[in-house]
């Protein structure tokens, strides 16, 4: 316990003594983490929007006319039990005909016609990529006459969504790299400022781990404080953005819920502290081996 006690004192001592450097390090990592937060939330929003678009795609299965109401119910539950299937909507041929007649009420002879339609089963899948597999399986079911899938459009939409996700991931990784570079640089300054102490620690037989500990904690603390500042900036910025969007484009439903924002804040804190700690571990380690 006394070791930990001593280490904490050393961290406090260093933070106080190198106040200006601490401020510099915290504010640079705050800046990087803020940008990271905005990019992440942006990517999240675009991703959710594209997921919502993809979710609208469904396969339509049309039964043969001989299918009875009971058979239709059985088909429905069979499709429902497929693992890839998210939801099933059944439109009976009577309902479909009513809808058709309503939609085309300006064509008077429709009402005198016999119903030419079949029952329709609309299937949504969990993963848009699985829609072809599901369509194939639907086609093999007895009583299903044809299946239609919006393949071309869907393919393009999936590709765009993937691109968006990849770009988001690349940007986030790059920003995390930048944050760790900034933190490790300021820890290197702090190591340099305390080189006498470190050399004496080595001389009197302190282990590498013991010497590193205060710097790792200091790095984590810088990251943590930076993340706290970043969360405040991000929260404020997002509020402004949401307000502006609500005013100018109220029809656009913002997909970022408050729950996922809490996760973003937590994520920033964890990333900030983790990156700070590991960046300083690396730079002290390098100094000790020099």
């Amino acid at each position: 316990m006394s070791r930990f006690d001593f280490v904490l004192r050393e961290v406090f001592r260093s933070v106080c003594r190198h106040g200006l450097m601490t401020v510099a390090s915290v504010s640079t990592s705050a800046a990087a983490l803020t940008v990271l937060g905005f990019v992440y939330v942006g990517a999240l929003a675009v991703n959710q929007l594209s997921a919502r678009v993809l979710d609208k795609f469904e396969a339509a299965a049309f039964t043969s006319k001989s299918v009875t109401a009971n058979q239709l119910l059985r088909l429905r539950s069979e499709i429902q039990s497929m693992p890839e299937v998210k939801s099933v909507t059944v439109v009976t041929r009577d309902e479909a005909w009513e809808r058709q007649k309503r939609n085309y009420s300006h064509i008077p002879y429709l009402s005198k016609m016999k119903n030419p339609l079949t029952d329709e089963i609309w299937v949504r899948v969990k993963q848009p990529e699985q829609i072809e597999i599901v369509a194939k399986r639907l086609r093999s079911l007895p009583g299903i006459e044809s299946v239609s899938v919006p393949s071309g459009v869907l393919d393009r939409a999936i590709r765009v969504a993937r691109l968006i996700r990849t770009v988001g991931i690349v940007m986030c990784v790059a920003l995390m790299g930048a944050t760790s570079l900034i933190t490790s640089n300021s820890i290197r300054l702090s190591v340099f400022a305390r080189r006498r102490e470190i050399r004496i620690m080595q001389l009197v037989g302190a282990t590498d781990g013991f010497i590193k500990m205060p710097f790792i904690l200091e790095g984590a603390l810088h990251g943590l404080l930076g993340a706290a500042v970043a969360c405040i900036l991000l929260g404020f910025g997002l509020n402004q953005t949401f307000a502006a969007v609500r005013q100018t484009a109220p029809f656009l439903q913002l997909p970022v819920s408050s729950l996922s924002l809490t996760n973003v804040y937590l994520g920033l804190v964890v990333v900030g502290a983790g990156v700070g700690a590991s960046a300083s571990a690396v730079s002290v380690g390098r100094f000790l081996r020099a």
Binding site: R3, F6, R196, E197, I200, M201, V204, G205, F210
Partner: peptide, 20 residues
Amino acid sequence: RLLPDRTAFENVAFALHVTG
């Protein structure tokens, strides 16, 4: 090779503290 910002006591105690 003393630490200038620590007292005589702290300089000597440092060798004990950093070795746990």
